[in-house]
Simulated assay, not measured.
Amino acid sequence: MGSLDADTFRTLLRRQAATVTVVTAPGSPPAGFTATSFTSVSLRPPLVSFCLDRGSSSWPTLERAAHVGVHLLGEDQHEVARTFATSGIDRFAAHTGWRYGPHGVPLLDSPVAWLLCRVTERVTAGDHAIVLAEPLLGHYAHGAAPLLYHEGRYASVAPSAVVARQAA
């Protein structure tokens, strides 16, 4: 039995909803890209991961970066996600809402949450690299809803319904 072809694999995985993140790294120029592969890995010690195509324009910078910023985008940040997903542009010139943080890491304005991380390991996995990183600093916005990616479109979480319990 052979492996799934790339198009079928991509179609199947589009059924999974994922939070939209932008990963940034210091450099000249700085690098940044939109990712839906971000996840927590461990609580003790705290570790997160994300994946990046080793053929992407951001890879040379990420391959050398000692620190990165991970930004969980809010439901109103579609344009930020599109900007950092666009190839062939200066993503930081196109998106002006950012500043330099510790270790020279670009930090985006107003995400749902951000983490400043130290890269601990890079693992080659097919045409991608899995980057493991240790969060050093972080911040989150209270009550902010995340931006999701599902079926090839940006989406948001439906408001929670209040369910009343009846006394038995």
Rank of each mutant, 00 (worst) to 15 (best):
H71Q: 04
P26A: 01
F9Q: 12
D76I: 00
V119S: 06
V41H: 08
V119H: 01
A93K: 14
A65M: 05
L136C: 09
C117H: 10
S28P: 01
R54E: 14
L47Y: 07
A155W: 02
S28I: 03
L12G: 15
E151Q: 08
D90T: 03
E121P: 04
L108K: 07
V22I: 04
D5W: 04
T11P: 03
R82I: 06
P30R: 10
G143E: 04
S57D: 02
G74W: 01
A144R: 05
L52K: 03
R64I: 00
Q16F: 13
Y140F: 07
L132M: 03
P45Y: 09
L107T: 05
G32H: 13
V41D: 02
V22N: 07
C117A: 07
S3D: 13
Y154V: 00
H139V: 02
A66C: 10
A65Q: 10
A31L: 12
W114I: 08
G32D: 07
S156G: 01
T96S: 15
L107G: 08
L4A: 11
S28W: 07
I89V: 12
S3F: 15
G126Y: 00
G101Y: 06
I130H: 11
H95N: 03
G74E: 00
A17P: 08
H95K: 14
L72S: 02
Y154M: 02
S42M: 13
S42V: 07
G88K: 13
E75R: 04
Q16L: 15
R15W: 10
M1D: 04
V157D: 00
L137W: 08
C51L: 14
M1E: 07
A164P: 00
G74L: 02
W59H: 11
A85R: 05
A113T: 11
R64D: 11
P102S: 15
P159K: 00
L47P: 04
R14W: 09
S49W: 11
A93H: 08
V41N: 04
T24G: 03
L137I: 11
A168E: 14
G27N: 06
A161T: 06
D109R: 14
P135D: 06
G101W: 13
A141M: 10
H128G: 13
T8F: 05
E121M: 05
T120Y: 00
P111D: 00
V131F: 09
A144P: 01
A31W: 05
G27E: 10
W59Y: 12
Y100G: 10
T8N: 01
T21P: 05
W98C: 15
T21E: 03
V105H: 08
H95T: 10
S87R: 14
F9L: 14
S56Y: 12
Y149L: 00
V41M: 03
L147F: 10
A85Q: 08
D5R: 13
L12F: 10
A161Y: 09
S160V: 01
L136Q: 01
V68P: 06
T19E: 00
A155T: 03
L13D: 00
W114P: 02
P45V: 09
S160M: 09
T8Q: 10
R15F: 11
T120M: 15
G2V: 07
A25F: 05
T61Q: 09
W114Q: 04
S37V: 15
D5F: 01
L13H: 04
H71A: 03
V80K: 09
A155P: 02
Y140H: 14
T34V: 12
P111T: 00
